[in-house]
Design a protein around this nucleic acid. Structure first.
Length: 427
RNA sequence: GUGGCCGUAGCUCAGUUCGGUUAGAGCGCCAGGUUGUGGCCCUGGAGGUCGGGGGUUCAAGUCCCCUCGGUCACCCCA
């Protein structure tokens, strides 16, 4: 490999066509669905004051060791955003839109960590947030939107896992009880999980290490300490999901990485990918976050979904193939290129996609280029056609051959040939 | 951050064991066979600081050291 002067930074990647066509389609799908649920798109800067993200929770790895932060020339502590929610909430506090406020986004997200399969320093997420609504039915709607997204992409091998963290008080109570329990079995935990007992005991529960899983099999459950009110709202969420025929399972070990969550917590897990990258959508309710960022007491809920992750999952399912990026028509001109220039532009005027060859290449070379372009039809202008005011229209994919058409009729002819054949349906 | 594996043409890879003349293949690309027509076939061509630096040696793609990068795993997460 000749020494490249530069390459994409560690943990980042370029996405070129035709792969990028898949991204376009995925984004169009998500945007269309979000709009269908009444969400407006929000665009926020991809870096923020470090403090914005620190409010997400001091005990989380995302904040403590994976933050992609630096000092800018003005001496400000800046961080590239590690996920979408904090920025959206910051924007909400800053602009105070009317509630209920429903926003969807697509954004790059950054984590300073060593890359591996399905994990990058820059990845991309789509997501939604709803602020100002505490109704359990909105939790159901957000989950329904997420599920519709996966289904629309053609995914089917996934599970919806939900849990309830209760409110801040439930959570504090539980932490205390759990910490006491874990302290007793501390020696039986996997070495790597022991320090979590003090720092963030709930994360011990979602450890994938066998010793830890065995030692915590009988650990107290969050459901044991939930207030009657928290239990009631969790049941209403479940009832809503059942009413919409959305299958789910409750997993009391589901904790998730950010510790701003309250009440409803959910995750769509791929059953087609390894556990290390199985989360394809993660979200939940965060009723204290707006206040933490300096806003009024405002409930919120949302989810984020990694685009690369979802594409990886869709690959594993052999779903959502890369769309055809071929052009409709390729225009060949061996007389210098003026005809190609004019004809291609006239075809584009009619809404067709058209491409052509450049630099006066031979007929053969231009035909090869036409073939490669994926075009259905080639329009060919050689010396004879130019003189006669004609062009040849040639079918490159089917068996319709080619014929000469007078220039004034050319565009209509091409449009007619590309129109889908009217199917004769028998009733 | 820690560890395993891997860096040779645009791509996929031989060649490294036991150093030895101008470093190969397939695919792709370009041109010609085909003075007006793609796909198949044939012929030819372009394209490599063998990731980078240092060392050993008469001689290094090949051995040693360092370094950069990729990949996978751990931690954690999308």
């Amino acid at each position: 490999m000749s020494t490249p002067a530069f390459s994409a930074p560690i943990g980042t990647r370029d996405v070129l066509a035709p792969e990028s066509a898949r991204w376009i389609a995925l984004l169009a799908t998500f945007g269309e669905i979000a709009q269908r649920y009444g969400y407006g798109m929000i665009h926020t800067p991809m870096f923020e004051d470090l403090g914005v993200f620190q409010r997400m929770g001091a005990a989380t790895d995302v904040v403590t060791k994976e933050m992609y932060d630096f000092e800018d020339k003005g001496g400000r502590r800046i961080a590239l955003r590690p996920e979408g929610t904090a920025s959206v909430v910051r924007a909400f506090v800053e602009h105070r839109p009317l509630v209920p406020w429903k926003a969807w986004y697509v954004t790059p997200a950054f984590r300073y960590e060593k890359p591996q399969k399905g994990r990058y320093r820059q990845h991309h997420q789509v997501g939604v947030e709803v602020l100002g609504v505490d109704d359990p039915d909105v939790d159901v709607e957000v989950i329904a939107l997420a599920e519709r997204y996966l289904r629309t992409l053609g995914a089917s091998r996934y599970l919806l896992i939900i849990n309830s963290m209760g409110d801040a008080e439930d959570r504090a109570n539980y932490m205390e009880i759990l910490r006491a329990y874990l302290a007793d079995v501390r020696d039986q935990l996997a070495e790597e999980d022991r320090e979590k007992v003090e720092r963030n005991p709930m994360r011990v529960l979602d450890s994938k290490r066998r010793e830890t899983m065995q030692a915590t099999a009988d650990a107290p459950r969050i459901s044991d300490v939930l207030s009657a009110e928290s239990v009631d709202r969790f049941e209403r969420v479940q009832a809503g999901l059942r009413a919409l025929d959305i299958e789910f399972a409750i997993d009391q070990r589901l904790v998730r990485g950010l510790d701003y969550y309250t009440h409803t917590l959910f995750e769509f897990q791929s059953t087609a990918l390894d556990a290390a990258q199985s989360t394809i959508i993660g979200g939940g309710r965060y009723n204290g976050l707006v206040e933490a960022l300096g806003g009024p007491e405002t409930p919120g809920i949302g989810f984020g979904s990694g685009i690369e992750r979802v594409l990886l999952h869709l690959d594993a399912e052999e779903a959502f193939p890369t769309p055809d990026t071929g052009v409709d028509v390729f225009v060949i001109d061996t007389t210098g290129g003026h005809h190609a220039r004019d004809i291609a532009e006239a075809l584009r005027d009619r809404g067709l996609s058209a491409d052509r060859a450049w630099d006066g290449r031979s007929m053969r070379a231009q035909m090869k280029a036409a073939d490669r372009s994926g075009a259905e039809l080639a329009v060919i202008v050689g010396a004879d056609e130019a003189k006669a005011g004609h062009a040849i229209v040639r079918d490159l994919r089917g068996d319709r051959g080619q014929r000469s058409v007078a220039r004034p009729d050319l565009v209509d002819e091409v449009v007619a040939l590309l129109a889908p054949d009217p199917q004769v349906e028998t009733p």
